[in-house]
Amino acid sequence: MHSERASLGLQIAAIGGLLFLHLPILLIFLYAFTVEERTYQFPPPGLTTEWFAVAWNRADIWPPLYLSLKVAAVSTVLALVLGTLVAGAMARSRFFGREQISLLIILPIALPGVITGMSLRSAFAIMEIPFSVWTIILGHATFCIVIVYNNAVARMRRLSGGLMEASADLGANAFQTFRYVLLPNLGSALLAGCMLAFALSFDEVIVTTFTAGQQSTLPIWMLNELVRPRQRPVTNVVAIVVFAVTFVPILLAYYLTRGGSETAGGGK
């Protein structure tokens, strides 16, 4: 076994790189407690917890929060159904056009969001579809399919085919095999996929700005606050909420699929 140790320079560069990835987010937390509401002065001149109460009482935050939760929930369910179906088809069989289909699935997140957004916007313009919750969901579900698909297909490939043959030999029909053999084995991978899809949808802003019209999801609300700040620490409080709502599912997804070759989150 090759057992050399990393040089000090490499260790410092690697650990420094990891810190670089994490420290900026901690600042968000710090600034939620500052007493200074008009600038981003560092260090904060004083600390207070009043902004959490102020944010709670701001009436303009709640409707975007509800809308974001609703969009993320519906998109996740749609992506769960569609992603699992396509994973079931792609996991074992070889057929004509398979490569093209796998390209089609990843295209919505492989191409820049501005293209997905602008494409949907063009389609709505041509077909004269008015903006609604459903125009947002249409976009979100499309790029969430690949997240569920990735998780499901990796787990299906790992499952031994003999398992399903054994189930059939023991007299189970296709639906019983799905219910009693496939689903229990697939469950945690699907749950992980759902959580990642939820986190992705809840946080999405680039495609959403093209498909939302005048509606405001929580990320769009935050974007407006970033461009025209009002009470800056309130934006920080909302940022913490957005961070928590995406962070917890991601962590859960990691623990659900840890140890396998297909640990969730490898590709966004």
Binding site: L18, L21, H22, P24, I25, L27, I28, Y31, Y40, F42, L196, A199, L200, D203, V205, P219, M222, L223, L226, T235, N236, A239, V242, F243, T246, F247, I250, L251, Y254, G265, G266, K268
Partner: peptide
């Protein structure tokens, strides 16, 4: 350490840099 920043909120990350 790499995956969490990858998935965590894009806007929150951008906002953090506005502060920095």
């Amino acid at each position: 350490g790499v995956m969490l920043p990858l998935w965590s909120s894009y806007l929150v990350k951008v906002y953090a840099w506005k502060l920095i």
